[in-house]
Nucleic acid binder design. Structure first.
Lengths: 102, 102
DNA sequence: CCTAGATAGTTATCTTTGTTAACTGTTACC
DNA sequence: GGTAACAGTTAACAAAGATAACTATCTAGG
């Protein structure tokens, strides 16, 4: 979620639910917790139905820190696996996902 | 779990926990539910601490049926992915797991 | 042989993440 | 203006994971 917000700038819950392939209550719960933690905040939106959120300054900082940690972890667990193999993995998993979603 | 029991013949909870990489309470709960469903039963064991289980006749039947369903599903979601690619996936995921467990 | 430590498994409790169903408030379209 | 659709919320449930604490049993060493 932090990643999505860092990349997209802001998002609505329904948009985030679509991206994450989960139902809206799941997104509601998690985005509310990020809000409680001070990582995300409301953004004004024309559509009063919408709850548009963006990262706070704290959220951006936490995201950068977490990214470093996760990048190191991924580098570690991918030791011995070539970049080409990693790309193959991603490509194949995308095919599997597409097949599941048919 | 059914797969393991079908292949191994019988198992103890601690053995199954190791194989599944979960803590013993998780295995206890699930094996008890399989027992309630009539899919597994006790096997006499010298070590009274142990709870050695095997598939019942019903469990074997259910396992065969489920296997057919799952094999078809896997065949479906692996459409467009060669056997070699599948083998690469398994191999790479085994490396990742080994790296995680280090 | 007895005891202490280790082992196998159980139980209670908690957490997390997912869901469905039902709901409220808002928007858009006819 | 009314209705259907949409965005989001809430309650309740389920599943699967964990930890901590416990009991019963086994094993090894003194």
């Amino acid at each position: 979620m932090l990643h999505y917000l860092a990349n997209e700038g802001s998002t609505t819950l329904v948009e985030l639910s679509h991206y994450l392939y989960v139902e809206k209550p799941t997104t509601t719960r998690t985005i509310n917790r990020l809000e409680e933690l001070g990582y995300v905040e409301h953004v004004p939106s024309r559509d009063k139905r919408e709850k548009r959120m963006q990262l706070t300054v704290l959220g951006q900082q936490v995201y950068e820190e977490v990214r470093i940690t996760i990048d190191a972890f991924e580098k570690d667990i991918l030791t011995g696996i070539s970049v080409e193999e990693q790309q193959d993995m991603v490509r194949i998993m995308q095919i599997i996902r597409a097949n599941i979603l048919k």
